[in-house]
Computed example of a mutant assay.
Amino acid sequence: MNTHDAPEGHEEHTPLPLPVNSPDRRDGQVYVMTAELRMAVKVALATGRPLLLRGEPGSGKSSLAAYVAREHDWRYYEYVVTSRSKAEDLLWTYDHVRRLSDAQVRDPGTVLNDADYVTPGPLWWAYNPATAADGRKGRRKRKDPWARINKDRAPDHAVVLIDEIDKADPDLPNSLLVPLGSHQFTVTDTGERVRRQKGAERGGRKGHTAAGQHLIIITTNEERELPQAFLRRCVVMELPEPDRERLVDIAAEHFRHEHGGTEGFDQELAEALARELLDARKEARATDVRPPSTAEFLDALRACTSLGIGVTHDDWWLIRSLTLLKPQQPEA
């Protein structure tokens, strides 16, 4: 309804703001890295070990992988773990139902090719995109599920995000020990051996060994304890909560990408919201509920900026309760 057509007795409101394009960025364009986190990435690459990121939800763990891939111009893949996930989902999946159906309707003498029913997972595409896409020996040519992003990126290097691994059964991280450590595995349904594609030694960046040509970033929200054997084989870093100064830096960087520059960025508003976030975290912990995250701080900033709400506005405290101190159950 147009604001000029408001029914009698109802106040007119300003038009609704346009929605933000992708508030949870997964394109790798925005990330404010600390020196410690950048060193952790370098260590993971130098050792060829996965980088396990710990931290509260909304702290930026999942966004790092796409940023590193974009920064280095490497291919990018991701897999979000669920309680039903199996290690094979990261390596390959086999369509038993489709094969059974084809076997029932095939012409006499027709031989089914098991490779036609295999779909490579993100680690296969990362380790060896050539065999993942292989269409030889009668196979159907497979398409990189992230082809739009990866078509012009370095074929010998890749970043893989394994998100929220703590949601899976402990068997999943244990089953990934060999594929993550040796960069190879066998597709049991076909007997095909998948190995890391050679060639990274040519043109690889200084300090990136062949073993570290693929960066595997794994995140956990600590909902379930991970096996010790798995932890021993990871470079582990906990993302600390950003202080007020870092929160403002993060806000400015996101504003720059969302608005095409820093013109119009309200430093005073960002600092006030940063203080509110830190206070809200203290309140949340005092009452045994989940503290608000950096992502929620950015939501509060976007709302205030879009709606023209400053620290002296009547709705300032409403923004705080809607974005920072949300009603929730006490933590277990």
Rank of each mutant, 00 (worst) to 15 (best):
L161S: 05
G212L: 10
R153A: 04
Y79D: 00
G109R: 03
L90D: 14
P129H: 14
P108R: 09
L100W: 03
R205A: 13
A115L: 05
A147P: 02
H183E: 12
R193P: 00
P179H: 08
A132E: 06
R139S: 08
G109F: 05
H96F: 15
H157K: 04
Y94T: 07
L90C: 09
D166G: 15
L180D: 10
A211F: 00
E164C: 12
G191K: 13
E78Y: 07
L91A: 12
P145V: 07
R139T: 12
N128A: 13
D171W: 00
T190S: 05
A126P: 01
W146V: 11
K141E: 11
D166Q: 14
E164W: 11
T131Y: 02
V159C: 02
P170Y: 06
H214C: 14
P145S: 07
T82L: 00
L100K: 01
L172M: 06
P122C: 05
K143A: 13
R205F: 05
W92L: 11
D169L: 08
I149K: 02
Q213E: 11
R75E: 04
T119I: 05
L90M: 15
I162L: 04
Q104E: 15
D107A: 14
T110S: 06
V105K: 13
R140E: 10
A200N: 06
R193C: 01
D166F: 12
D156E: 12
R140A: 12
T119V: 14
K143G: 01
P155C: 03
L176W: 04
E78G: 12
R202E: 13
K86M: 10
P173D: 07
I165P: 06
R142Q: 15
Y76S: 04
R148P: 00
S85L: 03
L177Y: 14
L215K: 04
L90R: 12
P122G: 04
G204W: 00
R99L: 08
G212V: 04
E192K: 10
P120T: 03
W92S: 09
V160I: 04
A126T: 02
Q197W: 04
I149V: 12
D166W: 11
D107K: 14
R142F: 08
T188V: 13
L176S: 06
R136M: 14
T119D: 03
R202T: 11
W74P: 09
D152I: 01
Y94N: 05
S175K: 11
Y94K: 09
D156W: 04
A132C: 07
S101D: 15
K198S: 15
W146G: 03
N150S: 09
R196T: 04
R196G: 13
Y127A: 10
R205G: 00
V81E: 01
